[in-house]
Design a binder for these strands. Structure first.
Length: 866
RNA sequence: GCUCAAGUGGUGGAAUGGUAGACACGCCAGAUUUAGGAUCUGGUGCUGCGAGGCGUGAGGGUUCGAAUCCCUCCUUGAGCACCA
């Protein structure tokens, strides 16, 4: 017992039990316990200076209910918490104050931990992880080096998204409608040397893996769309005059006879070759204009198509037709072959373009009609369909020579076959997914554990085979050229990890894409012994000059594998203890916001699949078997909570005023867990009253346990078993709102009728996952053993649910007219006999002719009349 | 524009083919109280004196029976947005 308080004094009760759970390590997850494991994972928070948001405890409470429920069912539960602590706000604070970001980060973590502990979650605090701790990021760096060694990390200086405001590059996934995902600042294209991870190599595995995991459909769909796999045909068109070939990519080879022009992207390498002398000027001007446009303009001004004719023609290899070659910026150089065959009759974009530039439109697909299956199609009579162009669906081929009458599906097959046989085309698979841009020009991130040395020294070390990095570098060297010197990347050795961030007082990146780490000159320029890997700050015999990589990793790096670290957070021999990994495998339940659908959740799956492939882990291919997104909690006014709207609810205030149990209960009672729902300041009163009612049912005005009934009456007995059933089933289905409603029904009944001591005990077990503090307190006052969350979960007795009397609804033409109570074993004849005696029911039947009777045993008797 | 999801009292929501509105908020009345607060009891979809009638975004359909299944439209939310 916490205190001998008389009233429901949550301010005394809650901290007492929180301390007790911590001190007793009540929720410590024992690795390799003989019990079956259950791993509940929350998306770990970024510890911002704003403190915890009211949305945080929503997901955390849901996972906590599950964790406590599983403990009570005999599972060995892993429910950890940690900090995704690298990130921009801490760095911006450092820039503003000149203070090292680790100081502020530590303060914020402290505050988050205190806040999270004030909710009484059954977390194993021994397993806390912090992505900014060198003991942690040592292994983030180690994973990077594995990716490097396997040729999945390389440098590139293609155009990348650059955000001038953040002074950093961003990944494709971090750019939304031409603005940064964080901060909503405009971004532009810039050529910079950057580290890139070859996530595209895992495109198919990332796609296939989605099939056997239990995730929200919308999230799966988003990942599928992001990967954007398509199957099609690459077809070579011959340039007239000239004779060289332009490969185009299409997913609709069946429309090949409808191609009336060909379009090159403005950046396409054959632009110069295809442009005739008299069109030179116009084409160059068009390309100049395109370059001036930002990517935002180029994609956002989708309304009006633009383009220019090159003067050349291309020969359609299927029918020998010559079609004009145009240049237009609606074709992207980075997708497919950067060139398309345009079929205006069956593609909206091509249609729009053809209309604007007066290019002919030729229909080759007729929409399928219900009556004919293609045989009666009259190719000459296609005028009828012209009004409906462009028609982009599947149909029947017309105007396509011997393919006329084929379906889209048949025609695709035939044309692909023909193209491959004749050698002017080949099947191809394309993806929208691009490689993951992995470096950032920031201070507050994991340093990339790479040294750069000159090419000749690199080659010499490898040919002489007397070097530590012989097996640690990819087959093809990762290199770049600057001022005519070529630099090659070599890794640090495992025992040189973690590569810690150097001390500096300059945290601001430069305007031209230089990381603040370049200012740490001592750290930056070193000497390395190529045979031993030894690093020295001073030149030495046998050492060669090297420069450290100055970019850091993006914030997503640390969160890609934290769920593995929780399994053995103090293990020093590897990222995860193989025994722990074999036992815990992967999270059984993962809950977090839907905003990470294509960022964290795609990156983490990529790393997991990779780690599995290289044998670093071995239990599962996919990291997150079951995923759930909690809904957003809106402000009182139905709008998103924001400082500017003044509708922000601070969880600390709620805990202060109503207690953590009320907050937990209320957030779960608001509505379905995945729904977006508005906070109501008045609404929380309801659950608070519920808790006070429970208190009053157990404890008298003197703070003593009340006298319970010697025995339950039948109504309460049935209600208890109904409640056990409903609460148990609803927890399994994550329908916490209705589970709480059922407990309220129980308490309302208990208040009227009274309950036995045994029933009072069982109810506390049901309540404990939702409101653990009050449940633990009353449990202790009843003299039961600590802890209520570790006692075997109650089961219901089905025989108690059966009743000897059932209610039958009497309907006429499906409308409820009366109800009767009958013996539960009553037959239809017996029910009818009683029904016919009901005067109210009979008044509805009088003068009507009975057509049919429908009887659903135990539920309904419906009389159909005329 | 395309794709997906969802529309139920004054409010949050319950019911996924069988009594629409569980549970809760709010509101009304009463009890207790010097008063307020707290607590307890009863009521509360709309309409009608009543029997009853109407009612789940709108319209249509399937069914003995539809909030639930199907079609069309409207609204809201989410995602994608020249990916050929």
């Amino acid at each position: 017992m916490a205190m001998d308080c008389k009233n429901y004094d949550f301010q005394k009760i809650e901290p007492f039990w929180q301390k007790k759970w911590l001190a007793n390590q009540t929720f410590h997850a024992e690795c390799l316990s003989p019990a079956e494991k259950y791993y509940v994972l929350d998306m770990f928070p970024y510890p911002s200076s704003m403190g915890l948001h009211i949305g945080h405890p929503e997901g955390y409470t849901a996972s906590d209910i599950l964790a406590r429920y599983k403990w009570a069912n005999g599972f060995n539960v892993l429910h950890p918490m940690g900090w995704d602590a690298f990130g921009l706000p801490a760095e911006q604070h450092a820039i503003a104050t000149g203070q090292h970001p680790s100081i502020n980060t530590a303060i914020n973590i402290e505050r988050f931990r205190t806040q999270i502990q004030s909710f009484g979650f059954a977390i194993d605090w021994n397993r806390e992880v912090d992505t900014t701790n060198p003991h942690y990021y040592r292994w983030t760096q180690w994973i990077f080096l594995q990716l490097f060694k396997h040729g999945l990390a390389y440098v590139d200086d293609k155009p990348v998204w650059w955000c001038p405001e953040l002074k950093s590059v961003l990944a494709n996934e971090e750019v939304i409608n031409g603005r940064s995902e964080r901060g909503n600042f405009p971004v532009e294209r810039k050529n910079l040397r950057q580290w890139v991870l070859k996530i595209t190599k895992y495109a198919d595995k990332l796609l296939d893996g989605l099939e056997d995991i239990d995730w929200p459909n919308s999230t799966k769909r988003q990942q599928i769309a992001w990967i954007g796999r398509s199957e099609g045909l690459e077809i070579d068109f011959e340039i007239i005059p000239g004779g060289s070939k332009i490969p185009v990519y299409t997913t609709r080879p069946d429309t090949i006879f409808g191609a009336t022009f060909l379009v090159l992207a403005p950046e396409h390498e054959l632009v110069e070759q295809t442009t005739t002398t008299e069109n030179q000027e116009k084409v160059q001007e068009y390309i100049r204009n395109t370059k001036k446009k930002s990517d935002l303009e180029r994609t956002d001004l989708a309304k009006e198509k633009s383009g220019v004719f090159t003067g050349s023609f291309a020969k359609n290899p299927f029918n020998g037709e010559q079609i004009p070659i145009w240049i237009a910026d609606y074709v992207l150089v980075s997708y497919g072959t950067g060139a398309i065959m345009a079929v205006p009759a069956h593609d909206e974009r091509d249609f729009e373009f053809a209309q604007k530039f007066n290019i002919s439109i030729k229909q080759v697909i007729a929409p399928p009609t219900s009556e004919n299956s293609g045989e009666n199609e009259n190719p000459e009579n296609s005028l009828f369909y012209k009004n409906n162009l462009p028609f982009c669906g599947d149909g029947i081929l017309v105007n396509s020579g011997k393919l006329n009458g084929s379906t889209t599906e048949e025609a695709k097959k035939k044309i692909m076959q023909q193209a491959e046989q004749c050698g002017f085309g080949r099947r191809a698979v394309k993806y929208k997914l691009r490689d993951w841009l992995f470096s950032r020009q920031r201070y507050w991130g994991e340093p990339i554990p790479i040294l750069w040395i000159e090419r000749s020294l690199y080659d010499r070390a490898l040919t002489e085979k007397k070097t530590y990095f012989l097996d640690l570098v990819p087959h093809i060297a990762v290199s770049y050229k600057k001022n005519n010197v070529e630099w090659c990347a070599i890794p640090l050795m495992d025992n040189q990890l973690p590569l810690k961030l150097p001390e500096t007082n300059i945290y601001l990146p430069s305007d031209d894409g230089e990381s603040p780490l370049v200012h740490a000159k001592q750290w930056l320029n070193v000497f390395v012994n190529p045979s031993t890997g030894e690093i020295s700050a001073e030149p030495q015999m046998g050492f060669i000059p090297a420069i450290r990589e100055t970019n850091t990793m993006p914030q997503w790096a640390g969160s890609c594998w934290y769920y593995l670290r929780y399994m053995s957070p103090h293990y020093e021999e590897g990222l995860v203890d193989p025994q722990a990994e074999a036992y815990w495998k992967s999270p059984d339940f993962y809950i977090g916001g839907a905003e990470h659908a294509v960022l964290h959740l795609l990156y983490a799956r990529f790393w997991h699949l990779f780690l599995y492939d290289i044998g670093a882990i071995s239990a599962t291919h996919e990291p997150f078997k079951k995923l759930f997104h909690q809904g957003i909690i809106l402000g009182n006014d139905g709008n998103k909570m924001s400082k500017s709207r003044g509708n922000v609810v601070n969880p600390d205030d709620i805990v202060q005023q109503y207690g953590a149990d009320s907050l937990r209960l209320y957030e779960m009672f608001l509505g379905p867990l995945d729904a977006m729902k508005p906070w109501s300041t008045q609404g929380i009163e309801g659950v608070y009253r519920f808790l006070k009612k429970i208190w009053a049912l157990y404890i008298d005005g003197e703070g003593k346990v009340k006298k319970f009934l010697a025995e339950d009456n039948a109504t309460i007995d049935r209600l208890l078993h109904e409640t056990i059933k409903k609460v148990t089933e609803d927890i399994e289905k994550l329908q916490f709102n209705t589970a709480i409603a059922q407990m309220m029904i129980f308490i309302n009944g208990a208040q009227k009728i009274g309950i036995s001591r045994q029933t009072a005990v069982v109810f506390l077990q049901l309540l404990a996952p939702f409101a653990p503090h009050i449940a633990e307190e009353l449990w202790a006052r009843l003299g039961e053993n600590f802890s209520v969350s570790k006692i075997k979960w109650p089961t219901y007795d089905p025989s108690k649910l059966a009743t000897d009397q059932v209610k039958i609804i009497l309907q006429i033409n499906g409308k409820m007219r009366d109800e009767i109570a009958v013996n539960s074993s009553a037959t239809q004849e017996m029910v009818e006999e009683i029904a016919w005696k009901q005067s109210r029911f009979m008044t509805f039947l009088s003068g009507k002719k009975i057509v049919k009777k429908i009887y659903i045993p135990g539920k309904i008797l419906n009389i159909v009349v005329k």
